[in-house]
Nucleic acid binder design. Structure first.
Lengths: 242, 242
DNA sequence: GGGCTTTATTGTCAACCTGACGATAACTAT
DNA sequence: ATAGTTATCGTCAGGTTGACAATAAAGCCC
C-alpha cells in the first residue's frame, strides 16, 4: 500500500432509502432541504457518520433523528457507497447509502429536522421530483436492489405488519415490481415455499369478500423444529421478465 | 441533517478481493504486509482513496500499482463498506471493499509493493492464513457475493480467457461453489441459455479426450442481431443447496 | 491398425415448477 | 335471496431439472 504520505480524509455520510407500501404503491421517504446546497430540493434522510460508529448504526440513528421514530421497524441493510468526487458542490463527500424496507409508519413531525419529512410515491419521485445530490441515482439503485431482494429472500413480508394475508403480501410484490401477479399462482407459491410463511390460525374479518388466513413470517432466528428455516427462498419467486 | 457542527473526517481506503481460478481451485490475491500494523500478516491489496477519485477507479489504480499489471482483466465491482470504527488499531478508517473476478494472470513482482503479492487458495486463506484487519470477514462476504453473482449473471466466464470450453466454464462454477456438477446437465444448461455463450466454431486440440468446442461470452455491449442479449441469466443457473 | 482410456456431446425420462385459467367457498352489500 | 368480491383449491400443458444411458472423437499403448 502507498502509505508513505498522509492520506486524504473525507467527510462520510450515510443516506437511507426508506421504502414502504402505501395503498399498494411503493413510497420513499424524502426530506425537504432547508439549507444550501439544494435548498428546497428533496433529499434522502441522512447525515454525517460519527467517530467510532459503524455504518448501519449511523444510518439507523440518522433515520430515527429525522423521523422522530424511536424504534425503527423493518429491515435495514447497506446498499453501496458513492463518491467521494463529483457529488457535492461543497467538495468531496463519501456517502454510504442504505436501504430500509419497512411497513408503513407515520413520520412524526417532531423535531425541526423532521418537519419536512414525508412519503412520496417512488415513480413520482423518479419522474418529476427535484432530488438533491446524486440521490436520484441512489434511489434507482435501491429500487433495483429491492426488486431483486424480494425474489430470493422472504423480506417482502417486512413491508407488511406482524400478521398479513397472502393478498397483502402479493400487493407488496406488485408494488415493488410494478407488475400484476396471478392471485392463484401467487397463493400456491407463497404458501407452498418452505420456510417462508407460517399460518397463525387466525383470519381476517370485516373486509369485503371471503375472509383470508393470516400469516406471519417464519422467524429465521427461532426455527420451527424439523423444518429448515431458510433465509433464502429456493426456488426463488422470480419477477416476470419481458 | 445535523450539519450544525463540523463533520468528522475519516481516511478512506479501497480494498480488492481479487479472485481467480487456478487448476480448478479458487484463489485470492494477498499481499504480505511489510509495515505495522499487522506486519507479516497477509492483507487484501488496497490503499487510500485520493481526492476527487471515484471508488472503483481507486480500486483499479491500487490493484494495478500493487500487482504491476497495467490493464487489469476481468470484472471489477463494489462489494461493500466497512468501518469506520473498530477495524484499524490506528483509529477510524472507512474501507470500501471491491470484488475482482478475473482469469488467472501472473502477479509481476515489479514494484517494491508487489514483491510480496501472490495467489493463495481461498479455503486455505480462510482456514489457516493470518489475515490483517477485518479482511477475513471481507473475504467471506466477497465469496458469498461471487457465489451468488455467477448464478444470475454470465460473469463466471470472465474467469476464463477470451475463448473457453464448456468444461472450463464448469470448472469455474465448481471451484467457486465448491461442488461437483454433472457435465451433461451443465452442458445442456450452459449452451441452452440464450444470451450466454457464443460458439466460435473453433475446437480445442491436443488435449486428452475428444476435442471440445470453443465458446466466448456474448458481448452485452454488441448484441447479436435478433437475439436478446441478457446481462442476467434467466432462469438462473442455481447452485445446489443442501 | 485395434483396443483402451478419456473427455465431449446428445438423448431419455420422471419429478417438479410455472403460467393460464376453471371452479368453489365464504364473506358483504342490496 | 341475489349479486359482487375476494380467497382458495384444482387442472393441465409446457418448460426445467436431476439422474443417468449411449454415442462420438480424440490420444495412448501394443
Amino acid at each position: 500500500m502507498s502509505e508513505t504520505s498522509a492520506p486524504a480524509r473525507f467527510p462520510v455520510t450515510v443516506d437511507v432509502v426508506a421504502l414502504t407500501v402505501v395503498n399498494d404503491r411503493l413510497n420513499v421517504l424524502l426530506i425537504t432541504r432547508l439549507i444550501e446546497p439544494f435548498r428546497g430540493s428533496l433529499a434522502l434522510p441522512g447525515g454525517f457518520v460519527l467517530p467510532g460508529e459503524d455504518l448501519v448504526g449511523a444510518a439507523a440513528r440518522e433515520l430515527a433523528e429525522e423521523t422522530g421514530v424511536a424504534r425503527m421497524p423493518g429491515h435495514l441493510e447497506q446498499l453501496g457507497s458513492y463518491g467521494p468526487g463529483g457529488r457535492d458542490p461543497r467538495g468531496d463527500v463519501l456517502t454510504v447509502a442504505h436501504l430500509l424496507l419497512a411497513p408503513n409508519f407515520p413520520v412524526l413531525a417532531a423535531g425541526s429536522d423532521a418537519e419536512h419529512a414525508g412519503w412520496y410515491p417512488v415513480d413520482q419521485a423518479l419522474e418529476s421530483l427535484d432530488l438533491a445530490f446524486d440521490h436520484r441515482q441512489i434511489l434507482v439503485d435501491a429500487l433495483e436492489r429491492a426488486k431483486s431482494k424480494i425474489e430470493y429472500s422472504p423480506l417482502a413480508a417486512v413491508f407488511c405488519g406482524e400478521e398479513f394475508t397472502v393478498a397483502q403480501l402479493r400487493g407488496v410484490y406488485e408494488a415493488v415490481w410494478g407488475t400484476r401477479l396471478d392471485p392463484r399462482n401467487f397463493h400456491r407459491k407463497a404458501t407452498g415455499t418452505a420456510g417462508f410463511l407460517e399460518d397463525t390460525g387466525r383470519m381476517t374479518t370485516g373486509d369485503t369478500g371471503r375472509p383470508a388466513a393470516l400469516f406471519r413470517l417464519v422467524d429465521a432466528a427461532r426455527p420451527a423444529p424439523g423444518q429448515p428455516t431458510r433465509a433464502v427462498l429456493n426456488p426463488p419467486l422470480m419477477r416476470p421478465r419481458p
